[in-house]
């Protein structure tokens, strides 16, 4: 077992003439919580989509637990234990909670050699998941469209953790949520960490990362500005890095 769960090395990606990521390197120890911050168009979401297999990088490589991760598809990333919770949750509104959780990874049973959906087992597993996470939904057989925003997020979190995830990536998990729901998300992230699951949070809300994170990485215009341990920095320094795109410590480190 390598010391780090994830190492992304020298990742670059362009969309036509636009350079979305240039030479980005990210290191994530096992079971740690990393905040990924930066202005709009900093490349945070693109970097995470690369990690989640939704975008294939032009250059660079990803090591998972020291071994090169080769996948070009979200399924491949999920098989490697990397799950992403999208900002819009990526749920199908008319499908039930249980159907959404197991979408693409359904539990099947065989009747006379014909594989059919094992709805009972999936519902039971879904209920266990919610209980284990300390999250609540009215019923796992209700269509997702009938749930509140916070409950839909609970479904997305349950789906992300249903299959032995080692890393859960959350894209703006506290945007559009009320204070009690934000508290719930923080609790959930802390609980994941206690269970040895690493979490990367893309967030505009620095206070969330200061509250529950171990480290943060600042990006601007597709490059890494700098990385800090949460207990070795403060709000003002991070804001400065986000705005100026420069690491103040590197500047002072250069002998005058």
């Amino acid at each position: 077992m390598s010391a780090n769960l994830i190492e992304m090395r020298n990742i670059s990606k362009s969309f036509g003439a636009v350079t979305a990521l240039s030479d980005v390197t990210l290191t994530l120890p096992h079971g740690s919580v990393l905040g990924l911050v930066g202005d709009n168009a900093a490349g945070k979401s693109t970097l995470m989509k690369v990690l989640a297999g939704a975008i294939t990088p032009d250059r660079g490589k990803i090591l998972i637990d020291g071994a090169p991760g080769r996948y070009s598809h979200p399924i491949g990333a999920r098989d490697a234990g990397i799950e992403m919770i999208y900002q819009d949750f990526a749920l199908v509104p008319d499908l039930t909670v249980a159907q959404n959780i197991f979408l693409g990874r359904e539990i099947m049973r065989s009747v006379a050699g014909v594989p059919i959906l094992d709805r009972k087992t999936m519902s039971a597993r879904a209920r266990e998941l919610f209980a284990g996470l300390g999250l609540r939904v009215p019923s796992v057989t209700l269509p997702v469209v009938a749930l509140s925003g916070g409950q839909q997020q609970a479904v997305a979190i349950a789906r992300a953790t249903a299959f032995n995830a080692r890393l859960v990536i959350m894209d703006e998990p506290t945007a559009n949520l009320g204070a009690p729901a934000i508290e719930k998300v923080r609790e959930t992230i802390t609980r994941l960490k206690e269970n040895g699951v690493a979490v990367i949070i893309i967030s505009h809300r620095l206070e969330d990362i200061f509250a529950i994170g171990d480290a943060m990485m600042v990006m601007k215009q597709g490059r890494v500005v700098g990385t800090r341990a949460v207990d070795d920095t403060e709000n003002a320094e991070i804001v400065e890095m986000i705005v100026t795109g420069r690491d103040p410590r590197e500047r002072t480190a250069v002998p005058a």
């Binding site: 939704a54 979200p74 992403m84 999208y86 990526a90 749920l91 199908v92 509104p93 008319d94 499908l95 159907q99 979408l103 693409g104 359904e106 959906l117």
Partner: peptide
Amino acid sequence: LHALATGGREEAARVM
């Protein structure tokens, strides 16, 4: 199920 998911929200079906 996958046919329903595709029509219900194609983008979600794709990322899954």
